[in-house]
Design a binder for these strands. Sequence first.
DNA 1: GTCTATATTTGGATAGAC
DNA 2: GTCTATCCAAATATAGAC
Lengths: 193, 193
Amino acid sequence: MARREATVAEIVDAAWELCRAEGLGGLSLRELAAKVGMQPPSLYSYFASKNAIYDAMYAQGAQQFAAREAELAFTGDPLTDMKLLNRFFVEFCTEDPVRYQLLYQRPVPGFEPSAESFAISVQSLEATQRRFAEVGLDDQRMVDLFTAIGTGLTDQQISNDPGGDRWTRLGDEATEMFFHHLQTRRTKRGTRR
Amino acid sequence: MARREATVAEIVDAAWELCRAEGLGGLSLRELAAKVGMQPPSLYSYFASKNAIYDAMYAQGAQQFAAREAELAFTGDPLTDMKLLNRFFVEFCTEDPVRYQLLYQRPVPGFEPSAESFAISVQSLEATQRRFAEVGLDDQRMVDLFTAIGTGLTDQQISNDPGGDRWTRLGDEATEMFFHHLQTRRTKRGTRR
DNA sequence: GTCTATATTTGGATAGAC
DNA sequence: GTCTATCCAAATATAGAC
């Protein structure tokens, strides 16, 4: 039924709003029901438990990530594409800190994403790894360093300048720094042969 | 009274243990009381509220950071000292993720550190800024980039390889990369004169 | 300072009528 | 599917005896 789907979507949307206002852990079924104009028990016609709602949110977030990533217009030039990847990741995470928290930091006690929802994330991660490889980033250490840079900018931005751009605006420069480091390493290795 | 101080310390220690086991938000006064062999209401002889306990934990964590930082043996060589700072920060944060969360991410709904406790953190931050300046790091953008690197390594380590060293071990290489970037910038600017 | 007893609130979740 | 009524558990916090 399309009707049912619509209601499910409405509930999930309302849950996001509540979490953005009061934190991920602050979600309560009473408030959620009130927000969508239901009595609390009625929610159980759509979700088996509170964690099932978190799971739906998780799946939605992971799908958003995958969809947005698939839209990226890569150029084939490694540095340009790395900047694109970095900018995408940092923007995606900082534009909705609660989503970032749910997807990548798991701060809800007792909640673990279901296998189905987690699979969406895994698929995305694999896609990202392929992107990295296409851009010439195949060394795991260097991939880890690059992801750390993205996470660090994201985290500082969210924690210390929410809504601003004090750290996000450093993304391109950070990527150039990283790219240059990559090239230096490669040259040294080539020379040793 | 020394007796009282000792009990207060025992309560705070027990609170840390519980938080490490069940997450910062999972702390309950019932469990805490049980852990120190009291009935829940007795805790109120030592702390006015649950948040007062969080506040004591926050103050303790901030003091630990300040004390450990003051012990660092700087050499005067910029690169060496930056590596030292990075290693210190990442180690301090990853060795107790819950403390990191409490001090730098504020994920306890409704808790804000008191002015007194927050002042300890502010003092530390200023000390760190002075250290940066002594090492030649005076550009705010570059300080921000350096702290983002530290936070990124920390965050990835905690989220994706807890207890391991997959990201912490990249600290020195990351610092070298950053240092080289700093020098390049400086040279370019010098050349332009 | 510590206890028992209890107030009060707020959760998630279920039963069963309609 | 939605409601009312309710259960049950857990939480912070207070009152007052000892």
